[in-house]
Design a protein around this nucleic acid. Structure first.
Length: 488
RNA sequence: GCCCCCAUCGUCUAGAGGCCUAGGACAACACCCUUUCACGGUGUAGACAGCGAUUCGAAUUCGCUUGGGGGUACCA
């Protein structure tokens, strides 16, 4: 068998969507598993909805996810260019071939005429199929229409192609993930392959590009199933090898509608912005429709590739559940080397004066606050009480339910008194505090309550990082001052 | 409307006629660990959409119904 070649062909009309990212991932996995090539092609035939900003976003997102392409607009390759708008000179040639072979014809219908046909079809509860009004126009008639100033679009002749290569009107193909799929081609209208302005349409351009780029397997979303029949016919009409197709279920939002902005992040870059690690994102998205054979869900892309079997992808849609993504993300955050984490986190700590902490203190702070993080951005709030020196904001609830208690007042007074004499290192504090709790335990105060009083006064909160380490990082002076301020 | 695809716990899934009184993961809940929070550990609850058919036997095969998704453009 010839070399496996797959592609991802995003349209730069928006930032890279997670759905597209998943399609890209499955293509990438398939290529890796089969020692093939992964191609990136930018489909920007519709100039109005396309922008360079989005092209850049697509590049960056794909790279961040680790889905590096072997051929593409930036890295080039044997079958370039890899941007459709730069390929406009090669599309007309095959249009002409289709025209010559009788598989395509000029259509002079106006938008109004077409609209009328559609309305009639819906009124009769029939599927809309183009009337083929222009199929057999004579040269005189065409000349006449041209003289009126009409510019023709080119339509593909479905019935002709179907008859030329298949026995019945039913067109079948064996889908890589869904198995045999079929469609009655009588229900497909003769669609436009070249617009009257000379630009190729999607269904036509993809075929030319896939054929010329020697794509062997087309893996994409199932929203393309209906296009597949049209594309197969064009491949055949032009004498190209028809690639294998594989259609993935869609990714839906928790309410089963299309995943959109109102559900939260949708673009890969949005997720990154919100504090998700791309390793977690790509791992999570791989689990949508696919399951590892060993049951180990957390694993890097390269491991997934080894285990990847396209025929075992689920053919149904799957819902994008943020909960599991968050769990995955916290998992990856915990696995990150501390040095890396320290750097990444700085982006979320710009509101603080990091110079208040030595590198050693900063390191320790990250170590003790990383545990509960589900998003990197959670660090911003989690760490607030490490800054501000002698002052800290006390939460209302902490004030009333903890600090106002008489026993808490006693604890704090003793803490300030004894603390003065303590050597303020984490190791020593650990021991001192242990004895301190014991002292109060004898008076009938639970260790928990003792710590809560201290935590409340020092951090202003009821929850937070390891208390001993927190005290050590803040230093004796800051801690005792904060404690004093909570004593009435 | 018409056409196509899909259907196992709330979610992602395992399951390719007997191994299934349906397994795992996330979420939920309970308990344990613990100087708080968290992490971790243990456990509980939770599904084969419905109806027919085939078969000795069906989550697994077939049909219908229902539900969900997609397509129906001179968008991609």
């Amino acid at each position: 068998m010839s070399e496996v070649r797959v592609r991802i062909a995003p349209s730069p009309s928006g930032n890279l969507h997670v759905g597209t990212a998943r399609t890209a991932l499955f293509n990438y996995l398939f290529a890796k598993k089969n020692n093939g090539k992964f191609v990136l092609r930018i489909e920007d035939t519709d100039a109005e909805r396309t922008s360079q900003e989005y092209v850049d976003n697509i590049f960056d997102s794909l790279k961040a996810l680790g889905l590096n392409w072997d051929e593409g607009p930036d890295v080039g390759g044997e079958y370039g260019p890899y941007t459709q708008s730069e390929r406009f000179d090669i599309y007309p040639k095959y249009i002409q071939e289709l025209l010559d072979k009788g598989f395509a014809y000029e259509c002079f219908c106006t938008p109004e005429e077409l609209e009328a046909e559609k309305e009639e079809a819906t009124a009769n509860k029939k599927a809309y199929v183009y009337s083929k009004k222009c199929e057999n126009l004579t040269e005189e008639e065409k000349a006449q229409l041209r003289a009126e100033g009409r510019k023709p679009a080119i339509r593909f002749n479905i019935a002709k192609a179907q008859k030329a290569f298949h026995e019945s009107s039913i067109l079948k193909f064996d889908d890589l993930v869904k198995g045999e799929l079929q469609m009655d081609t009588n229900l497909i209208g003769d669609f436009v392959i070249m617009k009257s302005n000379g630009a190729p349409t999607y269904n036509y351009a993809v075929v030319i590009d896939d054929a010329l780029m020697k794509i062997t397997h087309v893996i994409r979303g199932e929203d393309h199933i209906s296009n597949t029949y049209k594309q197969i016919l064009i491949f055949e009409a032009l004498g190209f090898d028809v690639p294998r197709f594989g259609h993935l279920g869609m990714i839906l939002a928790p309410d089963r509608s299309k995943l959109s902005k109102r559900h939260g992040a949708t673009a890969v870059s949005d997720f990154v912005e919100q504090g998700y690690l791309t390793e977690a994102l790509v791992n999570f998205v791989a689990l949508l429709g696919w399951a590892p054979s060993d049951g180990e869900e957390v694993k890097p892309v390269e491991k997934i590739a080894e285990d990847f079997r396209i025929g075992e992808i689920s053919s149904s849609n799957s819902i994008f559940e943020y909960d599991k993504l968050k769990w995955m993300n916290s998992h990856y955050i915990k696995a990150l080397p501390i040095a890396t984490l320290k750097e990444i986190l700085k982006k979320y700590l710009t509101k603080y004066n990091l110079t208040e902490l030595s590198d050693e203190q900063y390191t320790r702070m990250v170590e003790i606050t990383r545990e509960p993080l589900t998003l990197l951005s959670d660090i911003t709030e989690a760490v607030s009480y490490f800054f501000g020196g002698k002052n800290v904001d006390i939460e209302e609830e902490v004030q009333t339910t903890v600090l106002d208690l008489p026993e808490s007042q006693d604890i704090l007074k003793a803490f300030v008194e004894q603390g003065e004499g303590w050597e303020w290192t984490e190791h020593n504090l650990h021991e001192k505090l242990d004895a301190f709790r014991g002292e109060f335990k004898e008076k009938g105060i639970k260790p928990k309550a003792t710590m809560w009083a201290i935590r409340g006064a020092i951090t202003g909160r009821t929850r937070g990082a390891d208390m001993t380490a927190t005290l050590a990082i803040l230093g004796k002076e800051n801690c005792l001052e904060r404690a004093k301020k909570s004593i009435k």
